[in-house]
Amino acid sequence: MTSTTSSPTVILIAGHWLGAWAWDEVLEHLNTHHSRAIAITLPGLDGDDPERAEKTLDDQAAAILDGLTRLRVPGDQPAIVVAHSGANAPVSLVLDRHPELVRRVMWVDSGPVATGSVFAPDLPEGVEEVPLPPFDVLGQQASLEGLSAEILERFRARAVPEPGPVLRQPVELTNDARRKVRTTLVCCSIPSAQVLELSRAGHAMFAEVANLEHLDVIDLPTGHWPMWSRPGDLANVIQSAASRAD
């Protein structure tokens, strides 16, 4: 078993509408294995912040970088960054700006974005925030497989509207060193074989995967929110990556 003194810090970042709370069950399992794991809430997703609707991708990337530097013990190894879904945009910015701070990035039903990517390019400037859609609408966009009525109720109750500026801001990337960071794709709602096929075909959502120099793929079949549908299994995948001597 890897000890807390040698394990890298694991930073968990959830996607749209979610804060650190989304990882509670995963953290319970990781703590059992003595990982040094923390979850962070991105700027704009703290429901108590009166200015949250003004936050940008740059604000979110800055918060992640702050976490990477503040939580790093002097002389310690770089962190494992676990990014779920829409956290891929700010994490891609972090990898572009400071790849040396990340030992491995794990994309959970997600992946790196390409430069120029915009999540919602047609979102009008006057829209300050986008709330969690009705589940019948959301289910057409991302798989809800494995989510009980109780989980969906908690999701609805705790979700925070996504800031409009985050959804409209283009992701500008310039540093090819981001592609050298060791990467794990945790494929849940789309099988890894299909993800890799789409990547080779140049599909906009997966094109950057083809440019990664050190790539592992893991299938964890479930819906788009495996931190709730398969928290123990997801924790095991993260723990295994954190224990590897890359």
Rank of each mutant, 00 (worst) to 15 (best):
P99N: 05
D109L: 08
L68Y: 08
I38G: 07
D58A: 06
L173C: 06
L234Y: 06
D122G: 15
I238V: 07
W225F: 14
A61C: 08
R244I: 05
G126N: 15
T4Y: 13
L196K: 05
I38K: 12
A204Y: 13
R230T: 06
M106R: 03
E25H: 13
D24Q: 15
V26D: 06
R178T: 02
Q169S: 07
P8S: 08
E162S: 13
Q194V: 14
S229N: 07
A63W: 00
W23Y: 07
A157T: 12
A87W: 00
V26E: 09
L65F: 09
D109N: 10
Q141K: 09
P134Q: 08
L215N: 14
W23D: 02
A235Y: 00
E125V: 11
A149M: 12
P8G: 08
Q169C: 03
G67L: 03
E128Q: 15
A37Q: 03
P133E: 05
E28N: 15
V195N: 00
G19C: 10
P112R: 03
A204G: 10
E28C: 13
E153Y: 12
P163T: 08
I80L: 08
A142G: 02
F206Y: 14
A53Q: 07
D136R: 07
R182D: 04
M1G: 15
A201Q: 13
G116K: 08
Q141F: 06
V10W: 02
V108G: 03
H203L: 04
S92D: 05
T4W: 14
D66C: 12
F119M: 15
D59N: 11
E172Q: 15
D136L: 04
L196Y: 06
D24W: 13
Q140G: 09
L95H: 01
G126K: 15
G232R: 10
V82N: 02
W17G: 00
Q77A: 13
E129A: 15
A177I: 02
R179P: 02
V130S: 11
R72Q: 11
D66V: 12
L144G: 01
V217H: 07
E51Y: 14
S240M: 13
L27M: 12
Q140M: 12
P74G: 02
H34N: 14
R244N: 11
R158Q: 06
R200V: 03
R52S: 03
A20V: 10
E125R: 13
V94C: 03
A157M: 09
A142K: 07
A79L: 11
P8H: 09
R154E: 10
A193W: 10
R72D: 03
R52C: 01
A22Y: 02
S192N: 10
V26G: 06
H203P: 04
L196N: 03
E208D: 07
T5D: 10
A159F: 05
A114H: 06
R36A: 05
I40L: 08
D48Y: 11
W21K: 10
G75E: 08
W228V: 00
V113A: 05
E145L: 09
E197A: 13
H16E: 09
N175A: 14
L123T: 09
P8C: 11
V160W: 04
V81I: 08
A210I: 12
W107V: 06
C188Y: 01
S189D: 12
M106C: 08
I151C: 07
A159W: 04
G75V: 10
T41S: 03
T2Q: 10
E197V: 05
S92T: 11
A157F: 10
V91D: 01
T5K: 11
V130C: 10
H84A: 01
I13R: 00
P163Q: 11
T184F: 01
A207I: 09
D216V: 01
